[in-house]
Deep mutational scan, measured.
Amino acid sequence: MGFKLLSKLLVYLTASIMAIASPLAFSVDSSGEYPTVSEIPVGEVRLYQIADGVWSHIATQSFDGAVYPSNGLIVRDGDELLLIDTAWGAKNTAALLAEIEKQIGLPVTRAVSTHFHDDRVGGVDVLRAAGVATYASPSTRRLAEVEGNEIPTHSLEGLSSSGDAVRFGPVELFYPGAAHSTDNLIVYVPSASVLYGGCAIYELSRTSAGNVADADLAEWPTSIERIQQHYPEAQFVIPGHGLPGGLDLLKHTTNVVKAHTNRSVVE
Rank of each mutant, 00 (worst) to 15 (best):
M1R: 04
G2H: 15
L5G: 06
L6D: 14
S7Q: 04
K8C: 06
K8T: 05
K8Y: 15
L10Q: 07
V11E: 04
V11W: 08
L13N: 15
T14A: 11
A15G: 10
I17Q: 04
M18P: 04
A19M: 08
I20R: 12
I20A: 07
A21S: 09
P23F: 06
L24C: 09
V28C: 06
V28Q: 10
D29R: 10
S30Y: 06
S30I: 14
S31I: 05
S31A: 06
G32Q: 14
E33K: 07
E33N: 12
E33H: 06
T36K: 12
V42E: 13
V42D: 14
V42A: 10
G43S: 10
E44C: 11
V45S: 06
Y48Q: 09
Q49C: 06
V54F: 03
W55D: 00
W55H: 06
W55T: 03
S56R: 08
H57A: 03
I58R: 06
I58P: 02
Q61I: 07
G65W: 06
V67F: 09
V67C: 09
P69H: 07
N71H: 01
V75I: 06
G78V: 11
D79N: 05
E80S: 14
L81F: 03
L81S: 04
L83W: 01
K91T: 14
K91A: 13
N92W: 04
A94D: 14
A95D: 10
L96M: 06
E101G: 14
I104Y: 04
I104W: 08
L106T: 14
L106I: 13
P107S: 13
V108Y: 03
V112A: 06
V112L: 08
S113N: 15
S113V: 14
F116P: 02
D118F: 15
D118E: 08
D119P: 00
V121H: 01
G123A: 02
V124Y: 03
V124M: 09
D125W: 12
R128N: 04
A129E: 08
A130I: 14
A130Q: 15
G131M: 12
G131D: 10
V132T: 12
Y135I: 01
R141E: 04
R142E: 07
L143W: 12
L143G: 12
E145F: 14
E145K: 08
G148P: 09
N149F: 11
N149H: 15
E150V: 06
I151C: 08
P152M: 04
T153P: 05
T153W: 13
H154S: 13
H154Q: 08
E157V: 14
G158K: 15
S162N: 05
S162R: 12
R167V: 05
R167Y: 05
G169D: 08
V171F: 14
V171Q: 01
E172H: 05
E172W: 13
E172M: 14
P176D: 01
S181I: 00
D183M: 00
L185S: 02
V187E: 01
Y188L: 07
S193W: 07
G197F: 02
C199R: 01
C199Q: 00
A200E: 02
I201H: 02
I201P: 02
I201T: 05
L204P: 13
R206M: 10
T207L: 12
T207Q: 11
A209W: 13
N211F: 15
N211D: 10
A213P: 14
D214A: 12
D216T: 10
A218Y: 09
T222Q: 14
S223P: 03
E225A: 08
R226E: 10
I227P: 01
Q228P: 04
H230F: 15
Q235A: 11
V237Q: 00
V237E: 01
V237R: 00
P239L: 02
G240K: 02
G240I: 04
G242C: 03
L243P: 04
G245L: 01
G245D: 08
G246P: 05
G246T: 07
L247A: 06
L247S: 05
L249G: 00
L250G: 01
K251Q: 06
T254S: 11
N255C: 06
N255E: 12
V257A: 10
K258E: 08
K258Q: 07
A259T: 07
A259N: 08
N262Q: 06
V265D: 12
V266C: 03
